Simulated assay, not measured.
Amino acid sequence: MARNTPSGGKKRGAGAPQANRPLVLALAGFTALAIVVIALLAVLSARGGDAGNFTPNDQGLLPVGSQAPDFTTKTVTGERVSLPEGQAAMLVFFATWCPHCQNEAPTIADFSREYEDLRVMMISVADENWPETDTPQEVRRFVSEYGIQGPAIYDPELGRTYRVTGTPTVYVVDANGTIVGAHSGEAPREVYEGWIQEALG
């Protein structure tokens, strides 16, 4: 006949799950931390990583150290505008529908307000050859929405002159018209700031 367990007694092994609980919690915590670290590394990688390890994507662009091509064109509000003489400039080739351009727009807006000696020029390069197109009205809306100061230009031909094949593409030019930085794609803010400081001398 099977022996009954005495009333109020504990069965063997009943405490085992309790004994393993700290280990389970520790493993769960470690797993969660690993997921957070991996996600953070992925974000940094997508943004170009740390500025100290950043390598500009300037393949196919006008080379650093060369003279920026001069130009005269019109802004979306009809004013004539040229590459400034005796003043540093940041040329931002963009498209209003480009998500990477939208990501960088707040940083570009900051530069347009913070550096009085830097002329920020927003140049839309979208045309009939792109999957989507901009209009002068969309360009005006974009720079107004993000608070970007400086001339806004709709001129696809200017993009071809500067060998732009993707957006955003940024050139920083010093007061002598020499290109000190060039990059296609998103870049860390510190990279642009370094180029601006170099351009301002």
Rank of each mutant, 00 (worst) to 15 (best):
V172P: 02
T165K: 11
R189G: 00
V125F: 13
E104N: 11
G147S: 10
T107M: 13
E186M: 08
R113C: 00
D174H: 02
E186N: 05
N129V: 04
D127C: 01
E138M: 15
H183I: 05
D117N: 15
A175V: 02
A187H: 06
T178E: 14
M122K: 04
V164T: 09
Q149I: 04
G185C: 03
P168A: 08
E104D: 15
Q102F: 01
V139M: 06
T135V: 03
C101F: 06
F142I: 00
R141H: 13
G147A: 11
L118P: 03
P151D: 02
A152K: 10
I153N: 11
H100E: 05
G185W: 06
T161I: 13
N176A: 15
R141W: 09
N176M: 02
E128Q: 13
R160Q: 15
L158H: 08
R163A: 10
E157C: 05
R119N: 10
D127P: 02
T167N: 14
L118T: 04
H183K: 04
C101R: 06
P106Y: 10
R141Y: 13
A175L: 01
G181Q: 09
V125M: 13
M122C: 11
E190T: 03
Y192T: 04
E145F: 13
V191A: 06
N176D: 15
H183F: 04
L118Y: 14
N129Q: 08
D174F: 07
A109W: 11
E190S: 12
Y115Q: 07
W130F: 13
P106E: 06
V143H: 11
E104K: 12
G150K: 03
F111Y: 14
H100G: 03
D174N: 15
M122R: 02
D117I: 09
A187K: 01
P131N: 02
V172H: 02
R113D: 13
L118G: 04
S124L: 05
A182W: 03
E104G: 12
T178L: 02
G150H: 13
G147R: 08
Y154R: 00
T107V: 13
R113L: 04
P136N: 10
A187S: 14
T169C: 14
A126G: 03
S124K: 04
C101W: 06
M121Q: 03
S184A: 15
G159W: 10
T165L: 12
Y115T: 01
M121I: 14
E114M: 01
H100T: 09
A187N: 02
C101M: 05
G147L: 08
C101L: 06
V143W: 05
E138W: 05
V139N: 05
G159V: 11
